[in-house]
Each structure stands twice: as C-alpha cells, then as structure tokens.
C-alpha cells in the first residue's frame, strides 16, 4: 500500500511538472485488453479431442493494464494477464497399437498412457506479469496513435490434471504387472517461465475519456526453443518435467500470435 501511494505521488508530481502533455493533460491509462487468436491445435479449457487430433478453439487471455506516459512518445506499461486453457492428454496409440517408442507415452514409471476421458483436458492456468514500453510512432503523442510495444512477461503457470487415470503398458516391463491404473505424479504442478513480447497497435481516445486499444502481438518464450520442442523424452526425466514441457509448449503456442482489443479510461 505504501508502495502504491508512493508511486502515485511520484507520478502525480511528475504530471504536474512535466512537459509531457498526454491526452488533454492525462497521462495514465487503466484498462482491460483481450488477447485472442484461433487455436487450430487447441485445446481450450473444455476439450473434445486428444492432443494429436485437431481441436479448434479460441485462445484467449484477459489482461489488466496500467500505462503511464513518461515521455511524449513513450509509455511505461504494467500488466497482469490471466490465461485459462487446456492441455490435451496424449492418447499414446498409433494405428490401434501402443507405440512403445513414442514420446507420447508418459514417463511413469516407464511408459504410461492416459485412460480417462479425453473430452475433459488438463486445466492449465497462467498468471503473467508484464513490464513493457510502448513507443509511439513519430508525430504521435502518447497515448494516441500507432505504437510498438516491447514487453517482458513473467509467466506463472499451473497445471491441474487427472493423475488417477493412467495405465502402465504391460508389454514394456518384465514385472508381469497387469495393465492397471497408476497414479501419475501429484496431479498439480506449477512452473515459472519468461516471454518477450512485441506488439504493433493503435490507440484511440473516445469521448475524451475512453481508450480503445487494438493490434497484434507476437510473444516468444525462450524456454521453448527449437531444441526443446523437437526433443524426445530423453530430455524429460520425470513427470513434472514432462508436463512442464507440455504446458510451456501449450502456453508458447497460445502466446505466439494474438490479436488484441482493449478498452480503458484515462485515469489522471
């Protein structure tokens, strides 16, 4: 609270003494944005197919923004984002047979496969915090006009999955164990990640009060580089690692390209 008050005080002080005009003297924008894009390889929070099957969904992220013009063409942006999506279970079957060498099999204790309902995917939520700079194009005055935005996102992901419905593939083991249900991992994992985003957009002020923001964003997650995406299970040593990789990939896909529309208001 003390920090917030201090921050507001500093911002107000600068507003009163600076030569940054903002829009009609107002330099801070508080708003909501929605990032969205058609996801061809879903799933969404409610799934209808296993991972390899196409499942159309709309990737969706809700975002709260606080932006402040500290220079005539620059705004500092703080944002909190919430993503709720699904992570499809691997079916682990190709051509009607268990594919023993496939990375689609879960590493517990050897290869396992999911035997629950594929129509209800694992729930993946991600709370992201972003810090960025909006740079308005030559001639424009923040917060009005065309801009480019560079942003760093800190991603806090949480995966909740059905850990009770996994079966071990009997052909893989000499333990003579039957094809029985196993508990795979904890059923809930949390991961941290980082992403870099680049946005091209445009802001308009409506009725001297409301801020309409729209554009397109590209976000890159370094942890999901080409090696990790192509990597086999050899890089995954345990269930948590497996789900981390899968979650990161899902979030990375979701973040890669998004359109966005936002509505806010000029605060002060």
């Amino acid at each position: 609270m003390r920090f917030t008050i201090s921050l507001l005080f500093v911002l107000l002080f600068y507003s009163a003494n600076s030569q940054v005009s903002g829009y009609m003297g107002k330099r801070a924008v508080i708003g909501y944005s929605n990032y969205f894009m058609l996801g061809l390889k879903g799933p969404g929070p409610v799934n209808s197919a296993p991972s390899d099957d196409p499942s159309l969904t709309i990737n969706n992220a809700h975002c709260l923004n606080f932006e402040y013009a500290y220079k005539q063409r620059k705004m500092v942006c703080l944002s909190a984002q919430y993503i709720r999506t699904g992570l499809a279970y691997d079916k682990g079957i190709q051509n009607g047979f268990f594919d023993s060498g496939s990375s689609e099999l879960y590493p517990y204790p050897g290869s396992s496969r999911y035997s629950g309902s594929f129509s209800k995917p694992a729930l993946l939520t991600s709370i992201n915090f972003g810090l960025g700079v909006k740079m308005f194009k030559n001639g424009f005055i923040a917060p009005t006009g065309r801009y480019r935005k560079l942003e760093v996102l800190l991603l806090f992901e949480k995966l909740e999955y059905d850990s009770q419905n996994f079966k071990v593939d009997v052909t893989e083991y000499s333990s003579q164990e039957d094809d029985t249900l196993k508990v795979l991992g904890k059923g809930e994992y949390s991961y941290k990640n980082i992403a870099f985003a680049y946005t091209i957009g445009k802001q308009r002020i409506l009725k001297d009060k409301f801020v309409l923001d729209f554009g397109i964003r590209f976000a890159y997650t370094p942890s999901m580089n080409i090696i990790t995406v192509a990597a086999s299970d050899a890089y995954v040593s345990d269930v948590e690692g497996y789900f981390r990789r899968a979650s990161n990939l899902r979030i990375a896909r979701q973040q890669l390209f998004n359109l966005h529309v936002g509505l806010g208001f000029l605060a002060f």
Binding site: S21, I141, T144, R146, D208
Partner: peptide, 20 residues
Amino acid sequence: YTKSKDTSDLITSFVYNSLM
C-alpha cells in the same frame, strides 16, 4: 507529420500539446 486518419482525438492531442 503522421501517417494516420485525421481523427478528432489525434488532432486534440496535437493541439493540447501545443497549447500546453
């Protein structure tokens, strides 16, 4: 000089800046 439509908000931001 801007590559944009001459919307009212854009012109307002210019005028305000000048008059400020």
